[in-house]
Nucleic acid binder design. Structure first.
Lengths: 216, 216, 216, 216
DNA sequence: AATGAATGAGTATTCATTCAT
DNA sequence: GATGAATGAATACTCATTCAT
């Protein structure tokens, strides 16, 4: 389900069960992460990955149907983590937390994630180029929207569903896009940016909550 | 001699003065725009451009020192227009206009621009990959920040310069990033998104203007 | 791992162990030798080499990092042989041989070598143009000088080291330069030239041995 | 005669009579000389020459039928000078000069020439690569042989014509080859080399003059 | 299953020469 | 004559993927 085995050109070919195989897949993904930082998205090639991972090229194709499936798998790893962050601090914790706290928690989580995974923005923006990969991004985006919707429905119960979804979608966009740019080198003042982002999101939601006049 | 450009690896080689040359350069840029939509950033190659433009490859290299200079020239075309939009409705008009009107004007401008230039987001995100081109983006970003600063200084005169610049920079990021994503195909409901963006920006600035408490 | 060569831009990429690989490398070098004669140094291109060798271009790049490395490998083959010739008839034989015999032996060896390898002078002079290759020539030249020094030290023990080296160096130059020109087509009378060269070298050394007056 | 007007692919197309044309041809040759040193033989292209010479490309083709004819013309300039040097100090002077003096004079002349014309060895060795140009070299070589013959006939009147020609030819080879290598950077001790060369040539000729036994 | 040598289509850029103006 | 924009064939090197072993 999460790993559709119907031969989708981007999903992993074979679910590695054997220990060695699992280790190999992990090694491949780790190497790709490193190379993304070291050589850039376009600088990666399968032979290089194999060499750095210490496995033969052929083996890569036992786990992945093609080069892009590797990126996809790495992205999925990142996405799972991001979705978890985006989903917030968990039901019970969230129940006793003001919504602003959730926003702080999510943005801080994104910030920490970005610092932990310098290859993420490179992978993300690289995926835009390959039409097939772009579809994966759309998918992940939808998951982010769903996560946001949970909070929006709670905060803005009187809005139409369409409006709620629009807001959730804008928030997802903000999150993703700014996740990328806030990590990039030109924001050494990353901390300030993160704080400002929290302020922005809160202001946005508060304005909706107070039913602010839109026409002015 | 008059027009020998300092041979920057990205600036055009020769300024086309003759009618035919100007037409050729325009044709090249138009073809690149089309191909960007049709084949994606990585799908473009010089021979293809030449063929579609109906000129020999060699001719491309009379005007551009290399492939990336073509992208750069197209980007510059777009950037000029965007900067003009971002600068707002002009001094006199702006003087008699509430700041919200300026925001509406700019966002609407961006929206119209995006609809007119479907190749823009592809070009923009493609430029991220090529280090040299990335520098161009940084430059343009700075110009956008400057344009935003003018308004911020007027609206939030009591903030520190650093804070003003941070806000202007967030706005620029928002503008650029959302310019890209709001245009992309997955937002057919582009109009709603645009309206929501206006709301977002206004809420953000209003929150700053009212000196909202940040700590909550 | 055993055979990973330090990736010098001119040394072979992979040492061919398998029979087929070794044959391929040999075939490549043989084809380059032929083409050198047929088309000249500048007339050689990698695709042509591949075609004539009956292998795909890509295969060339499995063994050689670039075009010049092929020339270098061929040169090294030649050089090894030449150095061996230059080193003379071997210790024991040399011990029972007048020095003139050694000169005869070396020059005859050069002559035979030249007749066997018509591509050599083309390769040699071609290597002068490519700065990287020129360095290889300097190296080989030094080896030739060392080989000559052995004999010079024996024949002219009273000269200063600097003078001995100068003489050895002139001899090396003579050897190399004349190796090239004596082989070239305009000397069909190659045999006579070879004999004259022996005479020249002997006269030169004898003059030094007799401590001839230089000032006249 | 010296400038065959029959459309030889390497001779100049048109003898420039007009002042401006003569200046242009001279400028072209001077620029080629400079570029030879600056960019190497293969680094020269007609458009670059035209640009550096401050004339349009088309004009080059008014004086020279093709690129190689330019090299040829420059070579001819050099050769004329070299032949003059090689011809010795002039009839009257030579009559009152021991032959050793002539050799000194010629070698010194070659040395001075080499220092004056750093582009010469580059041009010379470059010409080896282009079959057509190689023929020019053969021609010039013959002229050098003729010049040497004059002296050889005087010094070794009893040798057969064939032998005289062989000796003259060896000397020419020595002269040319060593002209190139003695100039090159690896002989900073150029002066010593020059002196050694004089010694070599004198020893060679003296050995012939004394009818030295060849068989030893 | 595992390997890694082999494949060859694909691509940016150059430059001698021409010829319309 | 003079110009210099136009031309396009030519060329080194890469890399995703396969498949014989």
């Amino acid at each position: 389900m999460e790993h559709v085995l119907i031969e989708n050109p981007l999903s992993p070919r074979r679910l590695p069960k054997q220990l060695r195989s699992r280790q190999r897949v992990e090694k491949i993904l780790a190497v790709v992460g490193d190379l993304l930082v070291e050589k850039g998205f376009e600088g990666i090639n399968t032979n290089l990955v194999a060499e750095k991972a210490g496995i033969p090229v052929g083996s890569i194709y036992q786990f992945f149907p093609n080069k892009y499936a590797i990126f996809c798998a790495l992205a999925e790893l990142y996405f799972e983590e991001l979705i978890a962050i985006n989903r917030g601090p968990g039901r019970e914790a969230a129940a006793h937390m003001p919504w602003e706290g959730i926003i702080d928690h999510v943005i801080d989580g994104f910030g920490a994630f970005g610092r932990r995974n310098p290859s993420f923005p490179i992978l993300w923006s690289g995926m835009q180029h390959t039409p097939d990969l772009r579809d994966q991004i759309t998918l992940i985006n939808q998951k982010a929207v769903e996560a946001n919707l949970v909070m929006i429905e709670r905060l803005l119960p009187h809005e139409t569903q369409a409006k709620q979804r629009l807001i959730a979608s804008i928030m997802a966009d903000l999150g993703e896009r700014l996740l990328i740019s806030s990590i990039s080198e030109r924001h050494a003042e990353s901390r300030d940016v993160m704080e400002e982002l929290k302020f922005l999101l809160k202001a946005y939601l508060r304005a909706h909550m107070s039913g602010a006049d839109r026409s002015a």
